[in-house]
Design a protein around this nucleic acid. Structure first.
Lengths: 216, 216
DNA sequence: ACCTGAACACCGTTCAAGT
DNA sequence: ACCTGAACACCGTTCAAGT
C-alpha cells in the first residue's frame, strides 16, 4: 500500500529485464511487460514512446549490470581477454540482444565501456587510433562469436509462466544444425569450440606485433 | 494460362527474396509472400512447414547468389580480403539477415563457401586447423562489422508497394545514434569508417605472422 | 497433391476518455 | 501527470474443407 503506484521508468526497465531473462528479448512485448506490473499496456507509452525506447533503456541497464570492465591491474593482453570474455558471456546469457546491438541508440553505458577500454590500451602504449581500432575489432569478434555460437544451442525456454503455451514457437524448438551430419567432421568439431577462442587470439597477436614494432 | 499454377518451392523462395529486397527480412511475412504470388498464405505450408523453413531456403539462395568466392588466383591475403568484402557487402545490402545467420540451419551453400575458403588457405601453406580458425575469425569479424555498421544507416525503406502505410514503423525511422553528439568526436569519426577495415586487417596481419613462423 | 477460408491467440500503436 | 478500454491493422499457425 506504500507508494506502489506512480510507476517510474526504472520499474518498467526492471520488469522488462525480468521478462527478457525469462523469455528472451525477441518475445518481450509491451503487453507482457505491462501485465507483469499489473498495469495497462498503455501506461508505458508515457515513459517510452516506442518499444525501441524501452529496449534501449533496458540494454543500457543490461550493459551496466554486465560490468565487463576489469578493475584489476592485469597486463593489457589479459585485461582485453577478460573484458572480451565478460562481454561474450553476458551476450551469451542473453543471445537475443545481439540483433539489436546495432540498431539501438548508442547510450551512456556503452560509451563508458569504450572509454575504459581506450584508456587501458593507451596506458599500455597504444595510440588513440590504435586503441580505438583494437576496441572495435574486439567488439566485432565478440559479436560475431555470439552470432555463430547461437547456432549451437537452443533458447533457454524457461517455463511459460502465466498464460497458455505459445503455440507459435512449439514447432521451431529443435531447429538449427539439422544438416549437421552432412558437415565434414572437422568443421563440426570446430563449431563446438568456444567461439571466443577463435578470433580473439588472432586480434591480440596482431596488436602485440603492432606494439613491438612501435617500440623499436 | 500456360502452367501458372502448381507453384513449387523455387517460386516461393524467389518471391521471398523479392519481398526481402523490398522491405527487409524482418518484415517478411507468410502473408505478404503469398499475396505477391496471388495465393492463399496457407498454400505455402505444404512446402514450408514453418516460416523458418522458408527463411532458411531463402538464405541458401541468397548465399548462392552473393557469389563471394573469388575465382581468381590472387595472393592469399587479397583472396581473403576479397571474399570478406563480398560477404560484408552482401550482408550490408540485406542487413536484416544478420540476426538469423546463427539461428537458421547450416546449409549446403554455407558449407561450399567454407570448403572453398579452407582449400585456398591450405594451398597457401596453412594447416587445416589454421585454415578453419582463419575462416571463422573472418566470419566473426564480417558479422560483427555488419552488426556495428547497422547503427549508422537507416533501413532502405522502399515505398510500401500495395497496401497502406505501415503505421507501426513510422515513428522509429530516425532512430539510431540519437545520442551521437554526446559521443567524443574521435569515437564518432571511427564509427563512420568502413567497419570491415577495422578488424579484418588485424586478422590478416596475425595470419601472416603465423605463416612466416611456420616457414622458419 | 495442392489450395482455400475462417478462426485462434497473439502483436505495436492510436485515440478518446477517465482521475 | 498518469492510467484505462476499445479499436485498428497486422502477425504465425491450425483446422476442416474443397478440387
Amino acid at each position: 500500500m506504500a507508494g506502489r503506484s506512480a510507476l517510474n521508468r526504472g520499474a518498467y526497465v526492471e520488469a522488462a529485464l525480468e521478462v527478457i531473462a525469462q523469455v528472451g528479448v525477441d518475445k518481450l512485448s509491451m503487453r507482457n511487460v505491462a501485465s507483469r506490473l499489473r498495469v495497462s499496456p498503455m501506461a508505458m507509452y508515457k515513459h517510452f514512446p516506442t518499444k525501441d525506447d524501452l529496449l534501449a533503456a533496458s540494454l543500457e541497464e543490461f550493459i551496466a549490470r554486465a560490468n565487463v570492465v576489469p578493475d584489476t591491474t592485469l597486463p593489457w593482453e589479459q585485461w582485453v581477454e577478460h573484458a572480451a570474455a565478460g562481454m561474450y558471456e553476458a551476450l551469451c546469457r542473453e543471445l537475443s540482444w545481439v540483433p539489436l546491438l546495432g540498431s539501438l541508440r548508442v547510450g551512456e553505458q556503452a560509451i563508458t565501456v569504450t572509454e575504459a577500454f581506450v584508456a587501458r590500451l593507451r596506458e599500455a602504449g597504444f595510440t588513440v587510433e590504435q586503441a580505438l581500432q583494437a576496441y572495435f575489432a574486439v567488439i566485432q569478434v565478440v559479436v560475431g562469436a555470439v552470432c555463430l555460437r547461437s547456432s549451437l544451442d537452443a533458447r533457454p525456454t524457461a517455463e511459460p509462466g502465466s498464460s497458455g503455451e505459445d503455440s507459435r514457437t512449439a514447432k521451431t524448438d529443435n531447429r538449427s544444425l539439422q544438416a549437421a551430419d552432412s558437415i565434414p567432421g572437422e568443421l563440426r568439431s570446430f563449431l563446438k569450440r568456444d567461439q571466443i577462442a577463435i578470433g580473439l587470439p588472432l586480434i591480440i597477436d596482431a596488436l602485440r606485433v603492432k606494439l613491438e614494432e612501435a617500440r623499436t
